[in-house]
Nucleic acid binder design. Sequence first.
DNA 1: ATCCAGGATAGCG
DNA 2: CGCTATCATGGA
Length: 281
Amino acid sequence: MIRLRAVPAPHFNLEKTLCSGQVFHWTPYGRGFVGAISENLVYLEQVGASIRVPAEHAKLAAHYLALDHPLPAILQTFPDDPAIRVALEFGQGLRIIRQPPWECLATFLTSPLKQVQQIQAISLAIRKRFGRRLRCGEFEAFSYPQPQELAEIRLEKLLECKLGFRARNLLATAKMVAAGGVDLEALRHRSAEEARVMLCELPGVGEKIANCVLLFAYERLEAVPIDVWIGRVLNEVYFTGRAKVPLRELKSFSANYFGRYAGYAQQYLFHHWRLKYRRRR
DNA sequence: ATCCAGGATAGCG
DNA sequence: CGCTATCATGGA
């Protein structure tokens, strides 16, 4: 039986934070979610303006969920326009969390040309099949396999998790990281630009995935991953009527227009557009 | 059935 | 350079 402790969480929405396409393994359970933070089994539920979390992991969870981000101050730096206003209203309490770099990188390596729902299925399959089983009372979750562990897996076994052509990249990157080719912890102390270049040396990592990892794991809140949805928002809202805006123009616009926390603004736009316009096209 | 999905990359002109 | 075809799989 886990003893839950209430932790103050103002300006926070657990469901929006865990289900907005930045992290993919949290599973609805009871009134909350079960998952893992690194190798720790964690259950989370929201009650009003606080979250309930296993007492021994309260500090870990608060850091993971970025409850210390000054969210109102961050939101105030966004430009004031109709698209941002409606996205902020829609995504109230959404925070960009601090994921462990390896599992964030590995998960986004399985993301190209996949829907959020499928990325989630792949992530859970890899955890269940190759990760460590974490159990406490009624709660159960699986940790993400470490680079060394993943590097040992045969390609055919990995393919059973329905990765398709992404499996080769995940395996190759796991081997490089396991061999010390890129020190993911050391990237914390590099500039965003340097870290991006180093991440892009990994097989299967281009600028978009590198930006996802910078934003969702390394707290580089200015990094803007431009995927199909953000491309749509930018085209339809900020470049209305213009056909085929070059990607480099979208990038420079995002870096200049959305401000110091452009990555945060991007996530609100992403979440709003994906959910609101998914079914109508 | 046809098109699309939190893209990256080799190969082309 | 920039542009294009292609990659594996399941959802809409």
